[in-house]
Amino acid sequence: MRTLISIAALVMAGTPALAQDAYDLDPSHTQVVFSVDRFGFTTIFGSFMDAGGTILLDAENPENSSVTAHVETASVFLGHPTRDEHVAGQHWLNAETNPQLTFTSTGVTRTGENTAEVTGQLTLWGEARDVTFDVTLNQLGTDPATRRQAAGFTITGTINRADWGHQTAAALVGSEIGIRIEALGHLRAEE
């Protein structure tokens, strides 16, 4: 038994501790915006008003970082009540059946001093698919409004709804959906 404890102590001593700080997304300062072509005439912009999640940030080794995030599909906002209801409905987001869109990262690849590609599983319409987003760490420091440690990010990317088998009005409404997220996370208080 003493030998097993000694081996366990050696293994634990040789394992580097993960220097991850947990940042909870601030829903009042996180914006999830998307864009899609409509009939070739205009690009329609929309957003999700209810988003949240957690970023585990390793500032020294960003490749060890991860994120889990979600939006409530019923919170979609396109600037017109009838369109909001239509897009949240059965033929588009189907919010009743699919109340959340979720993203869980599976890898981070550093691309610059403050940039990275974050790959993960995006669950949309009840199906998970691999996607990659470009991420910029805008700032890490004290939020002047809250006096709390904060991390701000800009996330961009494009998904294709056809990858999920979504074909509603495919000849009229674009399959490619541009995504931009401005995310603010506050350092979680130690419990």
Score class of each variant (00 low, 15 high):
residue 71 V to I: 15
residue 34 F to D: 03
residue 7 I to G: 03
residue 63 E to T: 13
residue 139 Q to I: 04
residue 162 A to Q: 08
residue 43 T to C: 05
residue 61 N to D: 12
residue 104 T to Q: 11
residue 113 E to R: 13
residue 96 E to K: 12
residue 168 T to A: 13
residue 114 N to I: 00
residue 91 H to N: 15
residue 25 L to N: 03
residue 103 F to P: 00
residue 125 W to D: 00
residue 64 N to G: 12
residue 82 T to A: 13
residue 108 V to P: 03
residue 99 P to Q: 06
residue 4 L to G: 08
residue 41 F to M: 08
residue 18 L to Y: 14
residue 39 F to C: 07
residue 126 G to L: 00
residue 185 G to Y: 04
residue 189 A to H: 13
residue 56 L to E: 07
residue 42 T to P: 00
residue 118 V to I: 10
residue 56 L to Q: 12
residue 126 G to H: 02
residue 20 Q to D: 14
residue 53 G to H: 02
residue 157 G to Q: 05
residue 141 G to V: 06
residue 59 A to K: 11
residue 34 F to R: 06
residue 76 V to W: 03
residue 175 S to E: 12
residue 1 M to C: 12
residue 153 F to W: 06
residue 50 D to N: 14
residue 35 S to D: 14
residue 79 G to A: 08
residue 169 A to K: 12
residue 57 L to N: 09
residue 142 T to L: 11
residue 116 A to N: 02
residue 94 N to P: 01
residue 99 P to N: 06
residue 123 T to L: 01
residue 137 L to Q: 09
residue 65 S to A: 08
residue 10 L to M: 13
residue 53 G to F: 04
residue 136 T to L: 10
residue 87 V to A: 07
residue 75 S to F: 08
residue 95 A to V: 03
residue 14 G to R: 09
residue 97 T to G: 01
residue 23 Y to P: 10
residue 175 S to C: 01
residue 132 T to I: 08
residue 26 D to T: 05
residue 5 I to L: 14
residue 149 Q to R: 13
residue 51 A to M: 08
residue 36 V to N: 09
residue 190 E to Q: 15
residue 53 G to E: 04
residue 58 D to Y: 09
residue 122 L to Q: 01
residue 184 L to D: 06
residue 187 L to K: 15
residue 191 E to Q: 14
residue 146 T to Q: 05
residue 125 W to Q: 00
residue 83 R to L: 14
residue 143 D to E: 02
residue 78 L to D: 02
residue 78 L to A: 14
residue 140 L to C: 02
residue 18 L to W: 15
residue 110 R to Q: 14
residue 88 A to D: 07
residue 23 Y to D: 09
residue 109 T to P: 00
residue 35 S to M: 12
residue 161 R to N: 03
residue 105 S to P: 05
residue 187 L to D: 09
residue 181 I to K: 04
residue 2 R to D: 11
residue 65 S to C: 07
residue 155 I to T: 03
residue 40 G to L: 08
residue 92 W to V: 11
residue 111 T to V: 01
residue 58 D to T: 08
residue 103 F to N: 00
residue 92 W to E: 01
residue 154 T to A: 10
residue 142 T to V: 14
residue 180 R to C: 03
residue 164 W to C: 01
residue 68 T to V: 15
residue 94 N to T: 02
residue 21 D to S: 15
residue 18 L to M: 14
residue 8 A to H: 00
residue 150 A to T: 13
residue 33 V to R: 15
residue 111 T to Y: 04
residue 26 D to R: 06
residue 37 D to E: 13
residue 95 A to W: 02
residue 130 D to V: 11
residue 51 A to F: 05
residue 21 D to R: 08
